[in-house]
């Protein structure tokens, strides 16, 4: 088995991810500043683009404080779980089709797992362990509350998330992410790309809302809710370990956006590309670019939503999850099933 190819891919993905996260932190701060009629970081480097780098350097040099009564091994372990899980989710996401590089055809994904979606679902639910353990091992009431909230929130939203994915699976007929993207490159009525956002609009909405809850972004960032819980699960973290939580949060955001793009927005498929007589090499380049643009668009949406909606109250969050999202996702699944059964 060729070991070099996956290794190169791993290194590439890690490097690209970290650069992306740095850019993402910068752009989020800048955009939020613009939204609030401020200027935002503009001192470090041209237009302040190196601000996040400076922040990382600062975090690296800070003292790592562990509370006296904390459970040290688990306190150390929690951020590693968080970041490891967040990073490894990206392994199964196809960022492009097949590309010919150095005389070899290379699949533009790290691992073509035939149960890709199950893998993603499993890993995103693993992520909660990082947060919950961080909250519990810190031995502080704020952290514990943050961790508990996080687990309750993830359990409530995982259901609607899973159910809305099932609708997509019914249409695509496969659990393989590449297969789902392939299924979306067809056309409805000859002109509308058969993206799942058009075929499964309800599932798209429930999935996006659940994704907000899964990534702990506003309006569902109750696990860290600064005004109530100081910092939530990472109150007792400092230095590099805090940085890892921060990093995993942003990696989660990138991964969630990539999943949304793959499942609902056609993944790397470019509509009408096959009519343009392009060489295979150009097409695969355009595919990668399309994937990046789509993902960036979704990330931008996440950022803008963060500065638009206020945080939910805890009972409202639970109400929304169990009384609204779950029935809607379930009904959507039943309707999709009936329609598919009627037409096949």
């Amino acid at each position: 088995m060729n070991l070099i190819e996956p290794l190169v891919k791993v290194v590439l993905i890690l490097a690209v991810m970290l650069t992306l996260v740095i850019l993402l932190v910068y752009s989020e701060r800048r955009i939020s500043a613009f939204i609030q009629n401020r200027i935002g970081p503009n001192r470090v480097g041209p237009k302040g683009i190196l601000q996040a780098v400076a922040d990382v350097v600062k975090l690296l040099m800070k003292e790592d404080i562990v509370p006296k009564n904390a459970n040290k091994p688990i306190h150390d372990l929690a951020p590693m779980i968080s970041i490891g899980v967040a990073m490894s989710t990206f392994a199964v996401i196809p960022i492009g089709g097949t590309m010919v590089l150095l005389g070899q055809s290379v699949r533009l994904m790290l691992a073509d797992v035939n149960i890709g979606i199950l893998y993603i679902l499993a890993l995103t639910s693993m992520g909660v362990y990082g947060i919950t353990l961080a909250g519990w091992s810190s031995n502080s009431k704020y952290s514990l509350l943050g961790g508990l909230r996080s687990s309750a929130q993830l359990i409530s939203y995982e259901l609607s998330m899973g159910l809305s994915i099932v609708g997509v699976l019914l249409i695509a007929g496969t659990l393989q992410l590449d297969g789902i993207v392939q299924a979306q490159s067809a056309y409805i009525g000859g002109w509308l790309p058969a993206w799942n956002v058009f075929l499964q609009p309800v599932a798209f909405v429930t999935f996006v809302v659940s994704a907000f809850a899964e990534t702990n972004r506003l309006p569902f960032d109750l696990p860290e809710a600064e005004p109530e819980l100081v910092g939530g699960y990472h109150t007792e973290y400092s230095g590099l370990k805090f940085g890892l939580f921060m990093l995993s949060e942003y990696v989660n955001l990138v991964v969630a956006s990539a999943i949304i793009v793959t499942l609902f927005l056609g993944g790397y498929s470019v509509p009408f590309a096959e009519y343009m007589n392009l060489s295979a090499q150009t097409v695969s380049l355009i595919q990668v670019l399309t994937f990046c643009v789509k993902t960036a668009g979704v990330i931008l949406f996440f950022v803008v939503i963060r500065w638009t909606l206020p945080r939910f109250r805890y009972d409202q969050l639970m109400d929304l999850g169990w009384k609204v999202m779950l029935p809607i996702a379930l009904a959507n699944l039943v309707v999709t099933g009936f329609i598919l059964a009627a037409f096949s």
Binding site: I31, F34, I35, Q36, N37, R38, I39, V304, W307, T308
Partner: peptide, 12 residues
């Protein structure tokens, strides 16, 4: 509304 704020003059 949020997006329209982006293009307003800055008060910094």
């Amino acid at each position: 509304l949020t997006i329209s704020q982006i293009f307003k003059p800055k008060s910094t």
